[in-house]
């Protein structure tokens, strides 16, 4: 694919800004338009949170199950580890068997941690 290799300059990244501008433009347009077009009638009942018609009690900003935090924390860890595999995967052929074995060890560690987490019951949602 030599033909695609060209000199990169910062302006090569301009299209992304165009796309961003287009997307942002649409979003802002839509939000402003709906704001201007729609009717506005305020009332207390309408402003209340809609919780299946039941009177809403207290604030929604209550603590939630720690499992969600656990999932988030685990995600951060695993995601970074997975991102590490990307450069390896791209250069997989160059590294050859050695690289494969090294990644094997790496994955072994990752899996060890993974199984530990599973056995600890962090991912049990029942």
């Amino acid at each position: 694919m030599e033909s695609t290799v060209e000199q990169y300059v910062p302006s090569d990244y301009l299209p992304i800004i165009i796309q961003f501008a287009a997307a942002l433009g649409f979003v802002i347009f839509a939000l402003v338009a709906t704001h201007l077009l729609g009717p506005k009638r305020k009332s207390e009942v309408k402003g209340a949170a809609w919780e299946s018609g039941i009177e809403s009690v207290g604030d929604a900003r209550t603590p939630i199950s720690y499992k969600y935090f656990m999932t988030a924390i685990l995600f951060v860890l695993f995601d970074v580890e997975i991102i590490f595999m990307y450069p390896w995967a791209v250069n997989f052929r160059e590294f050859g068997v050695d690289g494969f074995l090294q990644m094997f060890v790496f994955m072994g560690m990752l899996l060890a941690g993974f199984f530990y987490v599973i056995k600890k019951g962090i991912l049990k949602w029942e």
Binding site: A112, Y116, K119
Partner: peptide
């Protein structure tokens, strides 16, 4: 260290 984690089960 890793082994120890599992032995903990």
């Amino acid at each position: 260290g890793i082994a120890n984690l599992f032995i903990g089960f």
